[in-house]
Nucleic acid binder design. Structure first.
Length: 270
DNA sequence: CTACGAACCTGCCTGC
DNA sequence: TGCAGGCAGGTTCGTA
């Protein structure tokens, strides 16, 4: 599961094969995802053209003439494009055949992802509540500063809250806080405006760089061609507990915030 | 409002 | 070898 860069990498990989083509068939091999795949979905999309493929937070939106397919990858989901026949694998839950003969397969061992239908994405319950995109103009240090006043939650938990800003998951929250030199456990409401300004810029930079490099190589992340991403080599703290900090050699420490592992450098992050 | 745990699942790794 | 336990990229929901 991907974070925002992995979802954006997926979108860019799928778009050329999908946009402007028609959906010949949607086959639901396993409908028990995070929420059941609607039973009428195959009939709803068959024969329809895909007008665009966009992303909001970690959701992919396939725009059809009369509505949108809404896809979330959860923790372990991936979409792949196949241009030649290949045997189905375990956990290939969805298969979309396109008019250009290529096939999209949704693979998701843990089934935390979803595929839903909406005619009004902006008003959909899952999307309506989301904060701004981290790469949008309205996301900046002043915004974070204002939103954080009075909050006692750790800044790391605050950053991962989708109501505040979307797309900052467990990996990139840790990386951004390391690069900003901020201790992840500090109360969000006690961080200064200046530090939020630096942090906001770092978040944008970290996410943009990860997108440019095709996402992070995670346990089972592959892009739409089935290839791993290349950002992993640059991870500074995520998954590095006990290893020396790249800056000061102090061993990276690890603890839990809201049940999610957080790694940080006790020397560089204060 | 906040904060925390549980829930939704499988796979993989570690240690006994 | 086997098995139990813990952990993993996300997000919603219920209870305190």
């Amino acid at each position: 599961m991907p974070e925002l860069p992995e979802v954006e990498t997926t979108r860019r990989g799928l778009a050329p094969h999908v946009v402007g083509q028609h959906i010949t068939q949607l086959k639901v091999r396993e409908s028990r995802l995070r929420w059941p795949v609607p039973a009428d979905l195959p009939a709803l999309v068959a024969g329809q053209p895909v007008l665009s493929l966009t992303r909001r937070a970690k959701y992919l939106l396939f725009q059809l003439p009369h509505g949108y397919l809404l896809s979330h990858l959860g923790m372990s989901g991936s979409w792949r494009v196949l241009t030649e026949p290949a045997p189905l694998r375990t956990h290939d839950h969805l298969v979309i055949t396109m008019s250009n003969a290529c096939e999209l397969r949704y693979h998701d061992p843990r089934r935390f992802g979803c595929l839903l239908w909406t005619t009004e994405p902006d008003e959909h319950a899952l999307l309506r509540v989301l904060g701004p995109e981290p790469l949008a103009e309205q996301f900046d240090g002043d915004y974070l500063f204002q939103r954080s006043r009075g909050k006692s939650a750790p800044i790391k938990t605050f950053l991962m809250d989708n109501h505040v800003v979307v797309g900052v998951g467990n990996i990139y929250a840790q990386e951004a806080l390391f690069l900003a030199g901020i201790r992840p456990g500090i109360a969000a409401g006690r961080v200064t405006r200046a530090r939020y300004q630096a942090l906001a810029e770092i978040i944008r930079k970290v996410l943009s760089e990860a997108i440019q490099q095709g996402g992070t190589t995670l346990r089972d992340f592959v892009n739409s061609d089935g290839e791993p991403g290349y950002f992993a080599q640059q991870l500074r703290v995520y998954g590095r507990e006990g290893l020396p900090c790249h800056i000061c050699q102090t061993p990276i420490k690890s603890l839990k915030h809201a049940n999610r592992t957080t790694s940080y450098c006790p020397q560089c992050q204060q």
